[in-house]
Design a protein around this nucleic acid. Sequence first.
RNA 1: GGGGUUGUAGCUCAGAUGGUUAGAGUGCCUCGUUGACAUCGAGGAGGUCACAGAUUCGAGUUCUGUCAGCCCCACCA
Length: 883
Amino acid sequence: MSNIPKTYEPQNFERETYAAWERDKNFHTTADAKGEPYCIVIPPPNVTGQLHMGHALDETLQDILIRYHRMKGDNTLWMPGTDHAGIATQAKVEEQLRGEGTNRYELGREKFLERVWQWKETYGNRILYQLKTLGSSCDWERERFTMDAGCSAAVRKVFVQLYNEGLIYRGRRITNWCPKCNTALSDIEVEHETEQGHLWHIRYPFKDGSGYVEVATTRPETMLGDTGVAVHPDDERYKNLVGKILILPLVNREIPLFADSYVDKEFGTGAVKVTPAHDPNDFEMGLRNNLEQVKVINNDGTMSDGLGKYSGLDRYKCREQIVADLEAGGFLVKVENHEHAVGHCHRCHTTIEPLISKQWFVKMETLAAPAIEAVKSGALKFVPERFTKIYVNWLENIRDWCISRQLWWGHQIPAWYCDDCGEMTVSEVDVHECPHCHGKNLRREEDVLDTWFSSALWPFSTLGWPDDTPELKKFYPTSVLVTGYDIIFFWVVRMVMMGLKFRGEVPFRKVFIHGLVRDEFGRKMSKSLGNGVDPVEVIEKYGADSLRFMLVTGNTPGNDLRFYWSRVESARNFANKIWNASRFLLMNLEGFDENFKPKRDDLELADRWILHRLAYRIETVTDNLERFELGEAARQLYEFIWFEFCDYYIELTKSRLYGSDAQAKTAALFVLATVLENALRLLHPFMPFLTEIIRQKLPHVEGSIMLAPYPTCDELSDLTSAEDDEIDAIANLVLSIVRSVRNPKSQLGIDSRKKAAVVLKVTNADFVELLKNHVNYVAELASAEPIIFADEKPAHALSDVVDGAEIYLPLEGLIDTDKEIARLDKELDKLRKFAVSTAGKLKNERFLTKAPPAVVQSERDKLASTEEKISSLEQRIAQLKSL
RNA sequence: GGGGUUGUAGCUCAGAUGGUUAGAGUGCCUCGUUGACAUCGAGGAGGUCACAGAUUCGAGUUCUGUCAGCCCCACCA
């Protein structure tokens, strides 16, 4: 039992502690281990990623749940791994290539992929290392990667089955295209932002020279691809003109004026130019009305060949040119300011260009239905509940999922095209011979799958699927998924759909949603703003325990939180407080008989009180953990350890520890050690390092805290219980007297630790004996000495009154009678107001008849005690005035 | 255009199923370093719980509306 340094310095032990846990395989479990299965699969961070505050929060919440359940005795598995993050990772390597003056096309697909794997090997573990510094107790032996052999096999199997069932199809459709990333995107990868744009009004003349139709557009450059103009069938203005031919300005293409009920009569001129190849709505109208699709914008955002002087221009340069030319030709009527929503690539923020291309899609309707049913039946529950509605609403309006990406890094789609017969073959294994014509000229589909396709399988692919592994049997469905609300659509819903489809069960029973970590001004932390705080820096300065505690306190499920250095400091101070409370115990342990175990009757009031408070906190902390109210659980522990244990209990043990009664000292040490050890175990999920390092120094302790049982009231049942009204009442009385001594002393500017005489007049006879027995507590906590029991009110004294007692501090010479009268008057005023409102309640007939008797009684008690206090104060004031 | 969410002390936030005189951290003020901790202790000031109604014996807590902020979804050119 050696002592510890004076200040808490996490840098000295966090790393070693983690290494020891790993060495001892404390994070590892097996399917056949005992206990109820409890499993969380990590939201796999991007291999390109660096730990940011969002991860830190996500990991901390998971680690708290994992450590709690592991201690509780569950067979606990936290499944770790990383995500290949298609676009992000590919972009990193392409950037590297740019620096070398080359690009992926020059390198070729095979060589490029070698480079990416190389990159992954070099940098891919950085984030995992960072997770370790945070204390994450993942089962690292089971680490997975979305592109490892197993996950890839799962992807192929799922793809092929969905294809065979007709749930995956390939089609030429209009999709969101990012000209910079040079790939198609799914709908949710497009972020809509309202922008201040323009509405250009343009005249399209009739071929027969009988005037013109005016259309309005926000994207004039797309007119090059116009193949019609649409009006609403009921629009009186155009009814007789439908069917006539228009001449497209600048292009001189003949295009029809047609009717389609999609058109809004009220908007613009009521006539819409229709560009089927570059607008989703126009695309649909084009299909309905048999219009030609003329593609005029290339994948890279420049204008297509065959458009004369416009060819090769950037889409926005072209827009300027078109507008200028329209104006010169007399076609431009007017330009209005117009606010509208524009889609941007969520990765690079380039404006999305809707383009027609051949892509792969997942048909969502049949997959979505069971996912909706899962929350309705209660098989899947969101915490907090409100996210259920968001989830359901999204699924009910879901559209097909574009899963093909024109990238190289990712799961290449397992489809082969035969150059001989033109047939396509989708297969789990590589195809070398066309099954239709036995030709050998096969080309594999070049596109890869959306990263989220493999993520969707994560809860079962990591457990070994498609093999029927013991892990899969034991841990699927997993217990809970912990993630931010920002990826519910990207990830959560897709996992639910795939889990239900391929395992017949939800992938997790609960989804615990948290918010975003923002900066001190409430802004989202982002690279471009440069306002991100690096968790690694915080850990280096203050320790992982401080960061974790800061992230979890003052936070409630589903809500954002702000990062403040001052809050990290406050968490660090808490750690230091625990450190020093432990240090206090350790330095007094000399000669402590480890085998001593007192009986309940050997304990004194303070001991019984702190043990009872401990039992109470065990109940509330456990209850809050079960309800995912981690912030509240942490707050409970903070209050218990700092206020109840340190501020009161430790102070009350000092006389015994410094005194000469060996047995009393041993009893006090026993309780101190017991309470501290329990508190450390309760706190361990939140602050794993500190609790481990301290607990190992305590008597009677063997093995790691992370494998010790989580405290229960049963464990303490021969010493205390969570319910003990008698102890509560006594503690309240003693503590309120303590406050009544401290308060006036402080107001007179007297050093709180300076001994001062106190006169107690006990007004409630029931308390006399009790107070006489425990008056030493008042003496110790309030530096009150001597304490005299008397029935007289000393004349020259500060005073206060509590339930059952009057407290006097005879400080002759220091008292300003007028000031004291004023102070008491103020107090009296407060009490009278309270008495009036309480009396009012009690006069209310309906309150008396309708409120529960217990509530009525408590109001009566309050009124009685308040009136008693009022009368005491009145007497006191009269006495002072008569001096 | 729908939907969600927030509005409590100067600042950041807790206050589940309505019931003591609404709490904490931080900041501020006063006092205090002979040993667990100044990364500390004692005390204090500071809130008409956004506003208006409703339900109720009783509302920070439930309902409706208003105002303000934030977010998500949405194919009006």
